[in-house]
């Protein structure tokens, strides 16, 4: 079974993340860049499926040159090869523009049975990209998976959202996005790190994919960020003095906030 994993390099959530003043895009120099944590889980899931069903795991990434580090991490975990789409014209692409490029990039991989992705990146937090890619590829989309099982040509997924748990089934090929409950990703070993260096990475520009520069980037995107401001610091909490009725007051407060 051949699996493609969509991965993204994001600013480390442990560092301070900023947007550039000029165009409100991510200030990539202000923070350490890492493979998004949810993508580590997607890669882990692909490797576990591969261990059972065989085939190849290909990592597909759209991002600037330095996203190579995120790709290497996925390869050092055990993925077999990678496709890296890097093009200056992509700067500022929104979710739809990025999805178009990703869909084309997935098309360069032969015999894909399954496309795995994280359900939401920790930077943009749009959370719509896996469904968009599925739409563009004409494949079923099974999102927010906490469990994935492949049986022959069908895939079963436990989809968990705030509303509850849904049990889904689709025929392969399909696109699946995973949530943070899917697994605990492995840490790459030194053997894996050294092996990753020798694994093939094909670096493509958008022209290689037949994507026109006018469809992507800040100019080609359907959405624009027009303004951005940091969250205001949290206001001071409300203090409850316990004069024998502390519990009641706390409960009243929680009811007021519609928390209980």
């Amino acid at each position: 079974m051949n699996i493609v994993v969509l991965v993204k390099q994001v600013p480390d959530t442990y560092s301070e993340r900023k947007l550039a003043d000029a165009d409100h895009t991510l200030d990539r120099d202000s923070a350490d860049a890492v493979l998004d944590e949810i993508n580590e889980r997607a890669v882990e899931e692909a490797l576990q499926l591969q261990a059972t069903h065989g085939g190849e795991v290909t990592v597909v990434c759209v991002g600037p040159d330095r996203a190579t580090d995120a790709i290497r991490k996925a390869l050092s975990m055990g993925a077999d090869k990678a496709v890296h789409v890097s093009d200056a014209a992509l700067h500022g692409s929104d979710a739809i523009a990025t999805a178009k490029v990703l869909a084309k990039a997935v098309g360069t991989v032969e015999g894909v049975d399954l496309v795995l992705a994280g359900n939401e990146a920790t930077d943009g937090r749009v959370g719509a990209l896996p469904a968009m890619v599925a739409e563009l590829l004409g494949l079923p989309a099974l999102t927010h998976a906490r469990k994935v099982e492949v049986d022959g040509s069908t895939v079963k997924v436990e989809r968990e959202t705030d509303e509850g748990v849904f049990f889904l089934e689709a025929s392969l090929p399909a696109v699946i996005s995973v949530n943070e409950k899917i697994n605990e990703p492995r840490y790459p070993s030194f053997k894996g790190i050294m092996a990753a260096k020798k694994k093939p990475v094909s670096t493509l520009a958008i022209g290689d994919l037949g994507v026109d520069a006018g469809e992507v980037g800040l100019g080609g995107s359907w959405t624009q960020v027009t303004e951005a401001a940091p969250k205001p610091p949290r206001a001071a909490g409300q203090r409850v003095e316990d004069e024998g009725d502390g519990g009641v007051k706390v409960a009243e407060y929680l009811v007021g906030q519609k928390l209980i």
Partner: peptide, 16 residues
């Protein structure tokens, strides 16, 4: 080397 640096980062993440 790149590999040693990648290992260092991995262990840094693990420790954290």
């Amino acid at each position: 080397s790149e590999e040693h640096e990648a290992l260092r980062k991995t262990v840094e993440q693990f420790a954290r």
